[in-house]
Each structure stands twice: as C-alpha cells, then as structure tokens.
C-alpha cells in the first residue's frame, strides 16, 4: 500500500506523453483516420492547385498555403476537440478526470499528436502540388516559411485547447464546432487572406491567433503580398500575444470547466 498522503507523484510530462501515445495507438488502430490525415490533403492539394493556377509567380505558395491550412485546421483544431468528444462517447471521460492528472495535460498530448499529423497533412499537400505542377514553389525565404508554418500550428493548437474545454463543458460542443467550422476557416484566412473579407469582419477575425499568424506567414513567403497594413512584424507580435492570452485562458477555463462539470454532473452524458 502507499503510505497515506504520499501517493505516486504525478508527472505532468508523463501524462502528456501517455496521451500522445494513446492518440498514436488509436490512430493506428482506427482506419477512419486515414481519410482526414492522408486522403483529404491529396484532394485539397489537387483542388487548390486548379483554383489558383496561373495567378502570378507565387500561385504555388497560395495553393500550398490554402490546402495545407485546410488540412491542418482539420487535424489540429478540429481533431483536438473531437478527441474529448470521443472520450464522452467511449465513457472514458469520467475515469480520465478521476485520475490525478489535470485533464488539460491529456488534451495537450492529443494536440501535440494532432500537430504532428497536421504537419504530415501539410507535407502531403506540398508533395501533391509540386507533383501536379512539376516544379518547386518559389518561396522568398524558405526558412521563414517553415518557421511561420510551425508557428501557425501553435496558434491553431491554442484555439484547439479552448475548444477541448468546450467538449468537457458540454456534450453539444460538436454541434457548436460544426456550426462555427466554416466561419472560422474563412474568417481566420486559412483559404484566402482575411483582407479580402468585408472590413467589418476583420475585428472578429483578429480575436483568433491563427488570423495574425497566417497573415504573417503570407507576408513571409509571398513577396508583394498585401495583407494587414501593419505588416509582418506586428502580425507576429499580435499572433504571439493572442496565443499567450489563449493559453493562459485555457488554463483558467479548464480549471473552471472541470469544476463546473462536477457541479452539474454531466460528465457521463454523451
């Protein structure tokens, strides 16, 4: 027996690593994941290439960004929330929350895995567009491009954490996410720059970290790109600031949400 009051120390890192491992095992065990992670990026790549074909020297970058973001959005953001929804369906949300690890560390593990699989999706898009066009895309600054690409993933993940909290909060989170999916996708500039949208939508878009990061990514990879007037530097600052706010908010929200579900007793609902 453990000495009273001295149970095993719970390592947050190990809990997150266990969550990554579980995500990988479930991914491998469930063939349905092949569709969003492997097949969808191929289709997105083909369609995006056809859409932007012939529109300037950087059309390949537009295609890769549009299709790549679409693929990563699904994996990183949607997948992270959905995994918590699945915990409700499987009935594993209760035993997971009953474990001493705060649930946010479990969510973090899932997001890490989703980031990796999202990047794989992005790489598939890249390969498809390059194969289709028969040429490498002209990227002004490849290092900056890759760095900003990764940064966009981080900003998407920060929204993913908040969405996961919604899934813990209510079984109707999937419904809410499905309603907001397209608006979020367009509103943050995943497919095309936000600047093309009506001016009054911009303040709403700027609430979300990926909007800033995507604009910065385009500034960094497409010479002559005309996004938000404040330019690349402030885009990065805005993205870092909003992501930090989201992550702090996530910690607070998760703590509150975990308490709330114990109050209302809806953990077993699905």
């Amino acid at each position: 027996m453990n000495a009273p009051g001295h149970p095993f120390a719970v390592s947050r890192f190990r809990s997150t690593a266990a969550s990554v491992r579980l995500s990988v095992l479930q991914f491998v065990a469930d063939p349905q994941w092949l569709i969003p992670s492997m097949i969808a990026p191929v289709i997105f790549g083909i369609v995006a290439y056809q859409l932007v074909l012939g529109s300037g020297p950087y059309f390949l970058v537009y295609a890769i960004l549009g299709a790549g973001m679409m693929s990563m959005w699904g994996q990183t953001l949607y997948g992270s929330g959905w995994a918590t929804g699945q915990d409700r369906v499987f009935g594993t949300l209760e035993p997971t929350l009953q474990a001493p690890t705060p649930y946010v560390y479990v969510v973090l593990g899932r997001i890490l895995w989703n980031v990796v699989s999202g990047l794989v999706g992005g790489a598939i898009v890249y390969a498809v567009v390059v194969a289709e066009s028969g040429q490498l895309p002209a990227v002004a600054n490849p290092v900056l491009f890759v760095a900003m690409f990764l940064f966009v993933m981080v900003t998407l993940a920060s929204v993913g954490v908040i969405l996961s909290a919604f899934y813990v909060y209510t079984r109707f989170a999937g419904f809410i996410q499905n309603i907001g999916e397209f608006a979020f996708y367009v509103g943050t500039g995943c497919m095309f720059p936000v600047i093309f949208l009506p001016w009054w939508t911009n303040p709403i878009s700027l609430v979300f970290p990926p909007t800033w990061a995507l604009d910065a990514l385009r500034y960094g990879s497409i010479p002559g790109y005309q996004g938000f007037a404040w330019g690349f530097g402030w885009d990065v600052v805005g993205a870092v600031a909003t992501t930090a706010v989201y992550l702090v908010l996530a910690g607070l929200v998760f703590h509150r949400v975990e308490r709330h579900v114990l109050e209302v007793g809806t953990l077993a609902d699905y």
Binding site: P7, F8, A9, V10, S11, R14, S15, A17, A18, S19, R21, L22, L25, Q26, A29, D30, F90, G91, T92, E94, P95, T96, A99, P100, T101, V106
Partner: peptide, 20 residues
C-alpha cells in the same frame, strides 16, 4: 469506460501513467 480499439495492457498503461 474503456478504449476499445487498443489492448487491455495499453489501456492499463495509459491509466498507470495518468496515476503517476
């Protein structure tokens, strides 16, 4: 209440880690 698509051992391993 169990992860059905993985093995019993993997289920236990996951929860062992969550329990530290």
């Amino acid at each position: 209440g169990l992860y059905n698509r993985i093995s019993a051992r993997e289920n236990l391993r996951y929860f062992a880690d969550l329990f530290g």
